[in-house]
Design a protein around this nucleic acid. Structure first.
Lengths: 285, 285
DNA sequence: TCGTTATGAAAGTAATTCCTTTCAAAGTCC
DNA sequence: GGACTTTGAAAGGAATTACTTTCATAACGA
């Protein structure tokens, strides 16, 4: 689909680009770009990585990705299975305020919005009334062009700026601005981890995927993700475990094994550490 | 000399014991006892370990060791060399306020002193005017007996209680109350480390001295000393390096090698980290 | 009260970190 | 200027820690 890091295709004078994805699964490679990305999930679900955040997306969710935040929407495995009618359907709006530089960008009325957008450097969940309003606005954007589309996006930004509109999901500000080589390497590694998170993965294996020694890989991974490989893998597995706990009736033990843990006792402890409650508690309220 | 942990020999009704050591070197095994120990160094110098403190002692120094603080005054190697006339000479006063329980211990006037003594659980340097006064008082103690000695010690405690009299050298409160087995093990280990600190010592070697696996030894050592083995060794080596820098005219490089470092660049960095200044700076003011 | 889940302690093992080396280069002091 | 010292960055490896297993036992819920 695209190369990493990629330029969002847009006429150089446009500061927005509107893209509808409707496929069995989303583009599944980690990538980054300077444009802000508003993402409206319509169908399909799976795991989302945005900066150092690891979580899940589902229909109705609206996410905002800041400048150069590495991210990937990775549809659930089942979507890949043959014979499935699964779809991944979303609308992405890419915004680049800087493309306005010549004209509107410097007018006083936009200063505040400009500053607001410039400091978006994380991964956010759009929530509350703003989410609903933005969902409407984004869908109304498609038929528009020129000034109409511009106005639509400005209205969207207006919504995003509302006090409670954004919930920041990422913590560190550190994962941005990876070199192209690093993004590629990380993409390979994370892809591998996501694909195999349901089984044991020795450090040696992922290190090999990254073409590095174990020690060098540890350093690289920690430096770029702010987490150790094991910790990251645990978080990845937790997204899956939570999913199974909430949406299936498997026992805790079976969820543990299905999520890549070989040891129930250990799963319980890791779950409590990361989620703040025991698997059983989580399964209820 | 004594077994570890030992009871300071004293008539059971005495609450103080006065001991003069005048030998080529001090008792060199780490040990602990519930009695407070006031130590007046007259001759000889070397390394002192008290709780988690690692440093040097020299004539004139006065130290106070709290209840059950593992400690050892280890005379410098040269004192062990044959043909040397080196002496290690010190006065130790062991105090056990609890031995007074039947009588004076509970009288109101002593409550404050009692509380003061009870909370002495570290390794302290006695400093300032109190040091000089205590030096006098301790030396005047020898001829005394009975009430005279009791009064002398009370005067000493009075001095110790002065605001600036004690400078706490140890940090953690954690190394106390080792089991007999642990003290023995630690004694063997620390003795080995002190004896060999001038050369490279692989973890495996000390672990063997402690009869443990490398990992178990790391856990044991960290838990009991609050420092890692390497860190402890570095501090040990630093006492030696500082000594050489101040009292010989060797170059920094030669001091580094003499202190057990195989790498000058590395020595410089470790020295700066632990001492807060570069070796050269330290050598001057 | 049984089946399942949660928690504690101890020890083995794998992962991660930090120590250490190396090399290069810059700073300091006679 | 030249010997010596200090500092930086990068990488290898030893040390240390964290993860994981195991076993025992407690707590929970149907």
């Amino acid at each position: 689909m695209k190369v990493i890091p990629f330029k969002v295709p847009k006429a150089s004078q446009d500061f927005i680009r509107y893209q509808v994805d409707d496929q069995p699964y989303f583009y599944d490679k980690l990538h980054q770009h300077p444009e802000l990305q508003l993402s409206l999930v319509l169908e399909g679900e799976g795991r989302l990585i945005g900066g150092d955040y690891i979580g899940r997306f589902a229909p109705g969710d609206v996410f905002l990705l800041g400048h150069d935040v590495p991210h990937v929407f990775r549809s659930d495995e089942q979507s890949y299975a043959p014979g499935q009618t699964a779809r991944s359907h979303a609308i992405f709006v890419f915004m680049d305020l800087k493309a306005l530089s010549g004209g509107l960008y410097n007018i006083t009325e936009l200063q505040e919005a400009k500053r607001f957008c410039e400091q978006l450097t994380g991964c956010y969940r759009v929530q509350g009334p703003a989410r609903e309003e933005i969902t409407r606005l984004v869908q109304a954007l498609q038929p528009e062009a020129g000034l109409g589309r511009l106005l639509g996006v400005l209205r969207i930004i207006e919504q995003l700026m509302l006090p409670e509109a954004l919930h920041c999901l990422s913590v560190a500000d550190q994962m941005r601005n990876l070199s192209e080589r690093e993004v590629k390497r990380l993409e390979r590694v994370l892809n591998f981890m996501m694909t195999h998170s349901h089984r044991a993965i020795a450090l040696e294996e992922v290190a090999a995927v990254a073409n590095m020694s174990r020690e060098a890989f540890c350093r690289f991974f920690k430096e770029r993700t702010r987490k150790t490989y094991v910790r990251y893998l645990q978080e990845l597995r937790m997204t899956n475990a939570c999913q199974l706990l909430l949406h299936t009736d498997q026992t805790v033990a079976s969820v543990a094994y299905a999520s890549g843990f070989a040891n129930l006792s250990h799963f319980n402890r890791v779950f409590s550490k990361l989620m703040g409650k025991t698997p059983r508690e989580y399964q209820r309220g």
